[in-house]
Design a protein around this nucleic acid. Structure first.
Lengths: 352, 352
DNA sequence: CTGAAAGCGCTAACAA
DNA sequence: TTGTTAGCGCTTTCAG
């Protein structure tokens, strides 16, 4: 009876069970279990025989049965209340890696801002007996907390904010990131630093503006020339044109709310014969390589360290699954990645 | 004994079991099961009582137990051999939606081109007793087939290609998409259509070039001026400069291998005082809105319909899980999304 | 050192 | 119409 008695070419041979292994090794199921889990006391010879058979049969224990027994599924849900876009993705990736390294599998759930869909996803996840849940989004704005009926499940909100004080929310420190950018411009001697950013209904917009104001005020500079618009290149172009229209009030630096705006602004500067960074320095936000590298000159930008955020979310969830009670809103530091657009020729990143 | 006997504020109350429901409704477990599954014959009164209790307790059946019994986990793995980027993501999203609508949950696995990591992921998925597997990638190039030891599991490769003839591979029709683009340019009267594209080691590069050649040859036009380089804007700029250097051989259209190249080319045209689309029409590939909308003029581009690809992958997998034996490489049609850069002022999409 | 038995939560025969 | 029982695959006492 060789190992290919049931070969992969059979029509759905199913997978071997512990019973198969035990039978073929001539031991009881309990013994086989002990051998495979290295638990209990067993003769080396028996253990070796069981392991040998298991390997030959490509035996893989059934996690479903295991989970049923242990009441722990080693499984976590990742719920995005928006399609996983440019922001949610780096987070999801780092999270997945962290959890996988801890032996935890990740269910991918996309609710696309549809409450009914979200409800059904949560129901499905409850059925799967997930041990934890990560909620993420495209924006860091406030959302309604997840309610898990009659069941205290560890939940981490990442790049997503919730009102409840006992919820754990992991967010980028937008304000600190903005301060970092503006302080860098100040250190390079810029004084008339304008801020061009996105729609004011985004929390990130006013946090970043806050950082811009704080950094300027700290140097006794009055923050003025604050323009909000869309998150687009075309808004960046338009804003730059507006800012440069009056030569008497010409800024010497632009801190932009995202990289697209910054790139549009750089474009417009060039069209108007204003050179960056000599005449006007520009700094963006997001450090999105597609933008920073294509911009001319390459764009200095604030990096939200989304990977670190996802990693931290995984670590926090693992702690919570082990019983820790984590709560509150934690803001993780951003970094500034310096490129040519701000007038320094350093290309290294500096951490906060 | 009210429903909040075990409220969410308890320290990990766990979840209620069918036994709890049965006990509280004063029936046997089997009866409760029948009531909840609407199976067997039951008095309406009993059924109602059971359902009422179940609702009050927020009872959710344990899918793990169910799966163990049915030997079907209603669970599928999504394995990306590269981080989910711009291409894998729209696919993943549509796939998730399709599977979720069929009651199937999706495990997210990222192997990041690391074979050892891939192996461990597959092992984990085997343990979870997944009913199917979707393999995806950032590129459509050939990869090694997944091997599932001793177990015939339905596998769909999407945006990812495998040599085996009995593997099902779903891919975009790159060649057809390119033909679509070039035919459109031809229909607008362009004749000297150059092709600027990415590195030749990408399968997509030579497929698209193939389409470009085929469309031209069909009109008895000799395909010439074929330039390969990086997938970047800066390559697009450089290539455009090269193509326009010799006024005697000036092209009247550029078909680009992706949107970044196309955008770079448009940029360069403008810098050289060549107006698009009047002097030179430009068409891109990918229909990546970040690029097409920021480009000036807005960029006409080929859309690979990645969502449709993901949806189709889900549908195919569901069929296979039901016993269908699907195989072979299927190429799904691309569409052309017409914007201003090619000289037409239509803005509607036309399907292949 | 090894095996028999109970049980995780659920479903499906089969009895009553 | 309802209940009893066995079993999905595994782990874990507890006897032998």
């Amino acid at each position: 009876m060789t190992e290919n008695e049931r070969s992969a070419s059979d029509a759905d041979p199913g997978m071997h069970t512990l019973r198969d292994v035990a039978r073929r090794a001539g031991v009881s199921i309990a013994t086989a279990s002990k051998a495979l889990n290295a638990s209990g006391r067993l003769s080396a010879e028996t253990r070796a025989r069981v392991l040998e058979v298991a390997r030959a049969l490509h035996y893989r224990p059934n996690d479903l049965a295991h989970s049923l027994h242990r009441a722990r599924s080693m499984t976590v849900g990742l719920l995005s209340n928006d399609s996983f876009g440019r922001f949610a993705f780096p987070i999801a990736e780092a999270l997945e890696r962290r959890l996988f390294d801890a032996g935890i599998a990740l269910f991918m759930c996309n609710a696309t801002d549809d409450p009914e869909r979200e409800r059904r996803h949560i129901d499905q996840l409850r059925g799967k007996r997930i041990d934890g849940l990560v909620v993420t989004a495209r924006r860091t704005d406030l959302r309604a907390p997840i309610t898990l009926p009659g069941h205290a499940l560890p939940v981490v909100y990442v790049f997503s904010r919730v009102d409840s004080p006992d919820a754990l929310c992991l967010l980028p420190d937008d304000e600190g990131g903005a301060r970092l950018a503006v302080e860098h411009l100040l250190s390079l001697g810029r004084r008339r630093i304008a801020h061009v950013t996105g729609p004011e209904r985004f929390e990130a917009v006013w946090l970043r503006a806050q950082g811009w104001r704080a950094a300027l005020s700290a140097q006794a500079i009055e923050p003025e020339r604050y323009l909000t618009g869309a998150w687009s290149e075309s808004w960046g172009r338009q804003a730059a044109a507006t800012l440069l229209a009056d030569p008497a009030r010409m800024p010497d630096a632009l801190f932009c709310g995202n990289d697209q705006i910054a790139r549009g602004a750089l474009d417009q500067l060039e069209r108007m014969g204003v050179t960056a960074p000599d005449d006007v320095a520009v700094v963006g936000f997001d450090n999105w390589s597609v933008m920073t590298e294509a911009a001319r000159p390459p764009l200095t930008s604030v990096d939200m360290n989304l990977g670190a955020l996802g990693d931290e979310a995984g670590a926090a969830l693992i702690e919570m699954m082990a019983g820790a009670r984590l709560a509150g809103a934690r803001r993780l530091p951003c970094s500034l990645v310096v490129r040519a657009s701000c007038g320094a020729n350093r290309t290294t990143a500096e951490e906060t």
